[in-house]
């Protein structure tokens, strides 16, 4: 999965860069479908593993918690616990479960809030956040609390930038560095509020949830 996943991400980024440099008129179309296609290798490799019902459950439960949290906090814009929960899942159950949790929470929460052109981007962004969290914790980088908070903060900012990318690349032409920077800067207040909310959610739960998830993993012999 990991190889295909990296390949998908790298090809998505290269499609973005090529479309922008060549100033293609159909940039919005191409990178939208590239984002949809980039999710597929992750899904197919998950499907091919044929997980047992028990191994499905962490992804299902964590996504359900994330979506429930997003619904409960829907009144406050950009104050969503999804990123925090996805990061914890990635750390506890590995990068694949992290990706699936992120992607599925994106898809299901939009069944409630309405699908839009943002759906594939959200799925991909949350998926990658979980994926990278899994890899980082495997390499023992996310051990100290401050590193987890820092990752949560940066990941939320990255999420916001990633979400803005489609609008900027697809609908602003010709692009120059002034354009790009000022478009991203307009989103900064939202991104900061999202990042703060992620840290606020991580603060009380990261220690106990990680402990608990590890215990459940041991107790039920989950992969």
């Amino acid at each position: 999965m990991r190889k295909w996943g990296w390949l998908a991400i790298i090809s998505l980024i290269s499609v973005m860069v090529i479309c922008t440099i060549l100033r293609i008129e159909q940039t919005a179309l191409f990178i939208f479908f590239a984002a949809v296609i980039a999710i597929i290798p992750f899904f197919i490799s998950y499907e091919q593993k044929k997980p047992k019902p028990r191994d499905l459950m962490p992804v299902v439960v964590m996504s359900a918690l994330a979506v429930a949290g997003r619904i409960l906090f829907a009144a406050l814009p950009n104050f969503k616990p999804v990123t925090a929960i996805v990061i914890i899942t990635g750390m506890a159950f590995g990068s694949e479960s992290g990706f699936m949790t992120g992607a599925l929470s994106g898809l299901v929460s939009n069944l409630f809030f309405g699908q839009g052109p943002w759906t594939p981007w959200q799925m991909l962004a949350w998926g990658i956040i979980g994926f990278v969290a899994g890899i980082l914790s495997e390499k023992n980088i996310l051990v100290k609390p401050w590193s987890i908070f820092l990752y949560g903060f940066l990941a939320s900012i990255g999420f916001g930038l990633f979400m803005d990318t489609w609008t900027i690349l697809g609908f602003v032409q010709p692009l120059n560095y002034k354009n790009i920077i000022s478009s991203y800067l307009l989103g900064v207040p939202f991104n900061i509020s999202h990042a703060v909310s992620t840290v606020v959610f991580l603060l009380p739960i990261y220690k106990t949830w990680l402990c608990q998830l590890n215990r459940i993993k041991l107790k039920f012999n989950l992969k």
Binding site: K50, K52, P53, R54, L56, M57, P58, V60, V61, A64, L65, P204, I205, T208, W209, Q212, L213, I216, F220
Partner: peptide, 29 residues
Amino acid sequence: AARMLTVLLSWSMENSLETADSMLAKGYP
């Protein structure tokens, strides 16, 4: 808040794993 969320997590995990076991017993795949 942390304690509440912890209780919620462990309840939903154990509940779902019971569902998974019963799915397996009923011949899920």
